[in-house]
Design a protein around this nucleic acid. Structure first.
Length: 438
RNA sequence: GGCGCGUUCGUCUAGAGGCCUAGGACAUCUCCCUUUCAAGGAGAAGAUCAGGGGUUCGAAUCCCCUACGCGCUACCA
């Protein structure tokens, strides 16, 4: 408790900002702040082949939109920078070399071709793919001559052949792996950049991260990280592996089967507070069982004891329901302010504001407003018959109803409210002779 | 294949040995409100707590096995 609490998210900037990142950001920030600590953003861009420049900006924008801005990070500042891994390469190199000097790692001169061949060979023999340790026991002379020849090399961890590694997961309890499952993983690539596993451990140590809270998919590599901490002689942080968000078929949430981009939700007009509320409900619950709550509540109440272990299915229908509740809870003026960015530039904003109270109860996403209110703004062919049109009307009767609605609208007392609208609709129905259920 | 993690209504979950003939929410259905559509209110249906063994006076809750699902198994993260 006396120790400082520092948590981080470490997304890689390889595409649109991902809901999984928002999900992790939520709990990392909430826990960090719950304990009076810091929440850090670090960009894991060591995979240069997948690097995407605008991505970093978009991640930060998305976090800002959700109210999950970090206390430290690229472009934000902090005393533990740089917060982008490619700017920290010397640090990884230095530490990797140190591991080699201390005999916990070694230079591997195997070419990619050899490794590929090895893998196919193993596959052919139905053996599990694993490094065969070819360079693990090279003599000093062999290493020297390889270097003299200018051969490039990677640095691999020299994993103990015996023993087990156990770590405690704040959500799942003790987890144990046999060391021999690890097969000398590469730590430093031949381009001098670290592999994720080296980078996280080094960065988390130098950034003084106290709790590593990340997705379940990292459980398998945690023993490797623990081993690294031990070889470096560093304190091992607490670990907590959150359940993985799932598609409806229970596979790991993916672009193909879900909208994984935070940008998409924003464009559709999901409110950030609805996103937070929904995400918080995935794998966690409030102690009092309430289901409508905000970030402040999560921050106040979050504990790992209340995190569930099963992977929750990301249900857009439920999100939409929650979103509707938040929309309805907003005062009209505020709702309108939020709505503005979603309206077409040429839309009559005064009219839109006038119409808003009527639409409020029907709005499920801000982005829906335009299509739902088309007929308020003029002849809109093909608008959906959601508001006042009989379900079973013919195209002609629908059109007629619309025309008369417009006349009626202008005669309704202003400002329009839900009530004036309802009574107006009743009057209109009378006028048209429309029966309930028609 | 190997290793690991998981498994309560369709979905999100409550539940930490007796309060559980398993509670809530979303979705579904019915009714009320309403001469539209929603919103709101009230109900209904929906889970032999994955299956099987234990432990115990008593198990959704503890232990073991099996099944199934998922994840990892890259010079990706």
């Amino acid at each position: 408790m006396a120790d400082k609490v520092r948590l981080r998210i470490a997304p890689s900037p390889t595409g649109d900002p991902h809901v999984g990142t928002a999900y992790m950001a939520l709990f990392n920030k909430a826990f960090a702040h719950h304990r009076g600590g810091q929440f850090i953003l670090r960009v894991e861009d060591t995979d240069q082949t997948r690097y995407n420049e605008t991505s970093v900006r978009e991640i930060i924008d998305s976090l800002a939109w959700l109210g999950l801005l970090p206390d430290e990070g690229p472009g934000i500042g902090g005393d533990y920078g740089p917060y982008v891994q490619t700017e920290r390469r010397d640090l990884y190199l230095k530490n990797a070399n140190e591991l080699v000097e201390r005999g916990h790692a070694y230079k591997c001169f195997c070419t990619k071709e050899r490794l590929d061949a090895l893998r196919t060979e193993q596959a052919a023999r139905k053996e599990p793919p694993r490094y065969d340790g070819h360079c693990r026991y090279l003599s000093a002379e062999e290493i020297a001559s390889n270097l003299a020849e200018g051969k490039t090399y990677t640095i691999r961890l020299k994993v103990p052949e015996e023993g087990q590694t156990t770590f405690n997961d704040l959500i799942r309890g003790d987890i144990t792996f046999d060391n021999k499952e690890l097969h000398d993983p590469i730590l430093l690539k031949s381009d001098g950049l670290p592999v994720y596993h080296l980078a996280v451990v080094v960065d988390d140590h130098y950034m003084e991260i106290s709790h590593v809270v990340r997705a379940e998919e990292w459980i398998s590599s945690t023993p490797l990280h623990v081993m690294l901490y031990n070889f470096f002689g560093w304190d091992v942080p607490y670990f907590a592996h959150m359940p993985l968000l799932r598609n409806s078929d229970h596979s790991k949430i993916s672009k193909r089967k879900n909208n994984t981009s935070i940008k998409w939700y924003r464009e559709q007009g999901y409110l950030p507070e609805a996103m937070i509320n929904f995400l918080a409900l995935m794998g966690w619950s409030m102690p009092d069982g309430s289901e409508l709550f905000g970030y402040a509540d999560v921050e106040r109440e979050f504990t790992f004891e209340r995190v569930t272990t099963g992977g929750p299915v990301f249900d857009l229908v439920k999100l939409t329901n929650i979103n509707g509740k938040y929309i309805r809870s907003l005062p009209d003026d505020e709702l309108f302010a939020r709505l503005l960015p979603y309206l077409p530039a040429d839309m009559d904003k005064t009219r839109a504001r006038e119409v808003l109270p009527v639409l409020k109860d029907r709005l499920t996403r801000l982005g829906e407003f335009t299509e739902l209110t088309g007929f308020f703004f003029g002849p809109v062919p093909g608008y959906p018959a959601t508001l006042l049109v009989p379900k079973k009307g013919t195209p002609e009767s629908t059109q007629a109803a619309l025309e008369q609605t417009k006349v009626l609208l202008e005669n309704l007392p202003r400002p329009w409210t839900h009530e004036t609208w309802e009574s107006g609709m009743r009057a209109l129905a009378d006028q048209l002779g429309v029966k309930a259920g028609d």
